[in-house]
Write a protein that binds this DNA or RNA. Structure first.
Lengths: 339, 339
DNA sequence: GGCAAATGCGCAAACGATTGTATATTTGCG
DNA sequence: CGCAAATATACAATCGTTTGCGCATTTGCC
């Protein structure tokens, strides 16, 4: 019932807490005999080390904080699993906090984590966060910081991002190769590296194919299903015949608009999404989409943290800047068929 | 850079740490004048309270641990958000751990949380966990415990579950009303309350309609897409014409099998799923499904924790046993049409 | 003006674990 | 056997906060 401490064990055995501590923390000089006694007593009393006390004394915790906009997105939940897969074996616990895409929540999350003396912070910032002062605070406090996916380039320190530019380039190229002629883009807020890079990749692919970019076909606040539906209508007014969407939800809206209006995908209209959400494979027609290797990104972000922690790389050093390739998963929605 | 402490503030102001502590923690007897001085100095030094030290001394933390099988399921991520929505305003932080449906991971998670002296634990156990000894440990250690969704009835203490029985009953009834004659069930491991209750509800609905239950049409290890696909074939061999599935992924497998084999849903075959995963609305035909109000459940679980914490209810008391109703969302896949 | 109550703050002991240093005991070796 | 070295344990300080107690000083009230 009442939690037991090393002092209880010490008292019961008529020895000092220091010996108990040493015995329980492993290797230091304690005789095999007393060690055995201590271990037995500890088991008997159901002793569990109080990590608060331990961390306070040691001045470091084995907890890493991870802040993401929302955990109910495949991308982020997989990234979390990827980070876990590295951190747990390394003896760290991961604590996960959602910012709900809100700046204030994010700030609060950072504060909470710092007050809890986390060993490091891995973050993908909320879309509402436009300036990263809070991030600099983290580094200044000497806490290892790793940004992933959504990056503030101005912040010192490690980051792991998708190669959004190349991904968008490939996706757009794919639409071009399939014979679509008037290709548009449903993107997100270009204040975010994610969306500005995707837009840039889109433009670049068209330029390389000597195709004109029609600015009327570029929408930069379109990452939801509703918006996708809405802007699809707009795009059609400008004779659009294909869209590269920076998000699958927007692409879904596009597909639904097409279905409601008897526009045949992929024959009359091509669409490529981004993220490979679960529904992408299942929706009809199945959605061609750019996959982000979320698990891998979480993995690398965690690895970057470990590298900083182990002193291989300074916190605040840009040495750990990683761009993870994206992969185009080709399905039905973008394969133009002759009829 | 170097983190500052109340001692730093005290020294700078030539007062004692106790006064600083009192000033910073609110109301106690500190003059307005010194309080102001302290607050200014704290801001100047960028002071952040060290929660480890604080909690150690106070003997309690403001952190609640939540253990779920996986965060990348709509149900669990929404339940987490629901819990957050209650706990954050109440001054608690939520730390989330995944068990990955593994018994050992779950055990480790419990241990970690307890070592971190969490204020309480909210858990939906892994499917691998068949006996709940670890749960009793939690209560014995005096830590408030709330089970949600997946419940061990033998464990003392609060729980919040779906009303799986009534939900399955309604879903099955719906298929009956739509004229399906030979209805089967794709369920999960009946060692879990979730699936045994759904199976019971299914049986009960058939019984109340004076319909025979064909045991060959009941499958109890079928909650994945692949299994759904596979058992759909089996079910058809026994002339099945509708399935109530205890999970949407299995229902998806059913739909895919039907599509590949030119079986028309809903005309020739009816299907109802459970959980209302994102794809349910999007798949074609759109899937009729039983919605679990995950957010609400998380909410109530958190509320139950608060009730225990505030002393309104004893930890280990069954008084907080809540069954949350499920709601049938009727879509295309179960509406038998005459043709 | 005198006395009780309230106020403001310091002192010091916790919370539970870790760890540098000191002390006692044992061991090894010539 | 004697002495140095190694081993096993104890002592005590420390991590940063909180908090009961105590002592001044101020305030309020008759």
């Amino acid at each position: 019932m009442a939690k037991s401490t090393i002092n209880d064990i010490a008292k019961a055995l008529n020895i000092t807490p220091s010996t108990v501590s040493r015995a329980l923390s492993g290797n230091t000089r304690v005789s095999a005999h007393t060690r055995k006694l201590i271990e037995e007593k500890a088991a008997e009393l159901g002793y569990e080390r109080n990590l608060l006390a331990s961390s306070l004394r040691k001045g470091t915790t084995d907890t890493v904080g991870m802040i993401v906009p929302r955990i109910n997105r495949q991308f982020f939940s997989n990234a979390i699993s990827g980070a876990e897969a590295i951190l747990n074996p390394a003896g760290y616990n991961l604590i996960i906090v959602q910012s709900h895409e809100r700046k204030d929540d994010e700030r609060r999350a950072i504060q909470t984590l710092m007050r809890n003396q986390v060993a490091g912070i891995i973050i993908s910032h909320s879309l509402e966060t436009l300036s990263p002062e809070a991030f600099d605070d983290i580094i200044e406090a000497g806490i290892p910081l790793v940004q992933f996916d959504r990056i503030f380039a101005s912040v010192k320190g490690a980051f792991v991002s998708n190669d959004n530019f190349s991904g968008a380039y490939i996706a757009t190229k794919h639409l071009i190769k399939n014979g679509y002629k008037h290709i548009g883009h449903l993107g997100g807020d270009t204040q975010s590296n994610v969306y500005s890079d995707r837009l840039a990749g889109f433009r670049s692919a068209l330029a390389d194919a000597d195709m004109q970019v029609d600015e009327k076909l570029i929408f930069t606040d379109c990452i939801t299903r509703d918006k996708g539906f809405y802007y699809m209508a707009k795009a059609l007014e400008s004779n659009c015949d294909a869209l590269y969407c920076a998000g699958d939800y927007a692409a879904l809206g596009v597909i639904e608009y097409a279905r409601h209006n008897n526009i045949r995908i992929p024959q009359d209209f091509g669409v490529v999404g981004t993220a490979n959400e679960t529904f992408a494979e299942v929706v009809s027609p199945a959605l061609t989409t750019l996959e982000q290797n979320a698990f891998d990104m979480g993995n690398r972000a965690a690895q970057a943290f470990l590298n900083i922690k182990s002193g291989q790389v300074d916190n605040g050093d840009k040495a750990l800047a990683i761009n993870v390739p994206m992969r185009l998963i080709i399905r039905e929605s973008s394969i133009k068929q002759q009829d």
